[in-house]
Nucleic acid binder design. Sequence first.
RNA 1: GGGCGGAUAGCUCAGCUGGUUAGAGCAUUGCGCUUACAUCGCAAAGGUCGCAGGUUCGACUCCUGCUUCGCCCACCA
Length: 976
Amino acid sequence: MDIPSQYNPKEVEEKIHQLWLKWDCFNADINPQKKPFSIVIPPPNITGILHMGHALNNTIQDVLIRFKRMQGFEVLWMPGTDHAGIATQNVVEKDLAKHGLKKEDIGRDDFLKKLWAWRDEYGLTIIEQLKKLGASCDWRRTRFTMDEDYSRAVKEVFVNLYEKGLVYRGNYIINWCPRCKTALSDEESAHKEIDGFLYYIKYPLKKSIAPIPQSSEKLNSINYQPSTINYIVVATTRPETMLGDTAVAINPKDSRYKWLKEAGVILPIVERELKVIEDEAVDLEFGTGVVKVTPAHDPIDFSLAKKHNLEFINIMNDDATLNEFVPPDFVGLDRFKARDALLEILEEKGLIEKKEPYKISAGHCYRCHTIIEPRVSLQWFVKMKPLAKRAIKVVEEDEIKFSPVRWKKVYLNWMHDIHDWCISRQIWWGHQLPVYYCRKCQEAEMQNAKCKIQNGEEKQKKNKGIIVVPEKPDKCPDCGSTDLYQDEDVLDTWFSSWLWPFATFGWPFKQHSAVSIQLSADRKEELKADSRARSEAKPPRGGKLKAESELNYFYPTNVLVTASEILFFWVARMIMAGMEFMGEIPFRDVLIHGTVRDSKGIKMSKSLGNIIDPLEIIDKFGADALRFSLMQLVSSGADAYLTEEKFLVGRNFSNKIWNAARFLLLKIKENNLKIDNLDFKELDEIDKWILKELNQTIEEVTLSLENCHINSATKKIYDFFWHKFCDWYIEIVKDKFTANKSKVLIYVLTNSLKMLHPLMPFITEEVFQLIKNHTSLSQDETIMKSSWPAKTHPSKVSGWSTCARKGIQVDRCELEINKEKTEGIETLLDTIGQIRNIKIDLGIATKKVKLEVKLKGPDLDLWKVNQPWIKRLARLETIEFREDLERVLYKSERGELNLIVEDIEIKNFLSSLEKKIKKLTVVFEKISQRLKNKDFLGKARPDTVEEEKIKFEQISNQIRRLTELRNAFKDADDRK
RNA sequence: GGGCGGAUAGCUCAGCUGGUUAGAGCAUUGCGCUUACAUCGCAAAGGUCGCAGGUUCGACUCCUGCUUCGCCCACCA
């Protein structure tokens, strides 16, 4: 079998993926012998195509999933997609528009058919793309938020909350998107600053008045006639809303306008008399101190109106054109056109005092970015405070932990100040409200929001004719009429997503509730004990888990991985839903990662054209390269700034792994070695060194992954593999490629592959299979199901054939991290570096020269034994061991060395010595100052002082040796 | 208006609970096709750790203020 010298991910990835599917590697089922570990995927929108954010998010999850799977947990990664109500409807509407059609033209039923057709055709695109990334989800379970079971769960929840009095219907001011023509929740309205103007508009008084000035300064500032006043000035950023004004408000403390009530105010153009109200909410400092009040189109005004019992006039249609409640000239005009027209008229009438440029913070629809219009309308809401209570507690008490921790505070702040959630949407794609109306009972109730609403409150206390049940009833329970119709609205997408961690398991229909409660407590205990030091995957206490249902077995899930953007949308609400419906937290850890940005720090988005397409990266460099580079860049929740070249690191590393394996396997073949066990004997110094390094790496990488510090795990394994294993061990071993060596090589390589597997699943699997094919070792079927490396003696590592378990002569102690055992090798490696340096200084970098060394004891033996590769790596002709050297070029506490060269160029050598001396002298000074300081000696910890003293010794010696060398050469140089 | 995060080599970032000769990758500069890998090897250069105070025997690490970039929340019309 030929192994090409360059790794070709394209050939490998698809093949490997098929293998995994064939071997059922992704599937998880209840297994009483194992502890569960589960993650639910943040379901991507069916409109989504894989972008870098997904790649990042899902790679993190897959790394944890694969790691835990190898650790022996029964691992479930639950996949699925979100119907994404508004987003999907928009996409299909656009499609229709291409044919010149509106959804109304084809009607609700046909439109929904089109939506389902669209979903069937494109809705699984992103799932296929996730597979390319290597995501090891249990694809059999792929859920969709509009699956039949799932939809039933959504309805159950709605009905349940309604019955508890936590879902209610009412006329309130909500965020209205005039383009999507639906209500939105507060979270779906993103506040952004836009440039606008603050207009100062004169509202005439009913009767002129001549008040006694309180303060001439203030009077001047609002610029009215000193004697008689016949208008007041209000400031507004949205002049068109004045057509819906029903009052003006002042602060009761404001002495400037005490007379206003008496004078009366007339709304210009409309010529309606406005009420004058007093309220603390009015800011004396802002504008003129007089506020126009538009109850139906402004949140503050809305609450003022409720408090002061004002009239609500909704002046807008659902597309933000003005309706018939405004003067005829304005009817049908778009809100911004109306604004211009109105300003023009006001200008003509001399009613505009001034306008100032002003930054307006306006809500924008998070789906189409249209400016939100606050608007009173009849909607359904969820009362959040009661739900928040327990969700706050579990986070406050760290039952659910955020990482990085700072998000805990963000979460709690939001939760403490939570507002009711508007959940009805005036679109067609989604879960239609399980609400039925009796036409007979309702009659006047269902007045459209277009009409005047007397009072925004207008609670339906009796709810007569409103039937909230999961399935359509036969007749009205009140009057027995069969003339029933369902509420047209659908639920907010997030009203289904918040059930994701348990509805995906078939809740509430597949749950054995009695068992559930008991087991939940059980599991909770376990998780508590386990979570901080998750280690081996032992079966639950008592060795059996009485899980009749998957929900009981896999819920609560272990960790939720997400970006901060959906903390409120989704994470917070899942916690509330979990507590409310399961009585238990949905996940124990929340891992919040950063946002993917471009090189300038701007969030990647298609509209800005600054995206780097992960699929393109996969195509060019491979999925492993993409994954590795992303994981290397992601650090504890910080944003990642990406450029295409950053993926080269991953690509190059893939190639390095490939070639290390290639070399090993070619050598085995070349030397005709038959490897049927890993029963390696006679470990020499260098073997012990690499095994020690390996053990240490295993320890560190495992710990990092346990703590979800993926990037540090990435760095450690990278450093070990490339700079220890490839740069040194493989290079050294080239000379003497024996069966025994090849066993060590395979052992180290395989363990490295295992550690790398969560990060780079494809190449590690491919190489794992290659090793199997090139040797006679009996190994696991797939690396995916092999066991995670343990920091231990090789014989104790499971996953190897039984032959690997017996007869290994190595004392376990020898492989422990033991400084003395490998110090000789470490010094030797360091010395080789010194020789290389000296040769460069002397200008003979590539020349093969003779080396003389003066060594003693174990070092001498070590050098003698290892001569061949020392010569090769340091590029030496011969090594001579002598009692005394003619000349010394390098000195350490362990020995001296000299290179035999004629006419050496001493200048560089000397200056490099000087430099070293200078650098060390600076440190030396620092340390001696410290040691002279009485306070330091008295107050610092004794062991710190001791360390400093040792350091002092070492550095003095180093300086002494270097100085001696320097002087010797300087003398010689001077004599010349 | 509140809150949060970042500011360390030219670039992107590590640096845990205060004591390090402050690290890595990329880029740069030399040298090198040495028995896998030029998607490579060997080496070099490059940092008064944003600024100013403070605490401390000692601060890149802790505290305060400032500068600057970026996020999130908020009913200043």
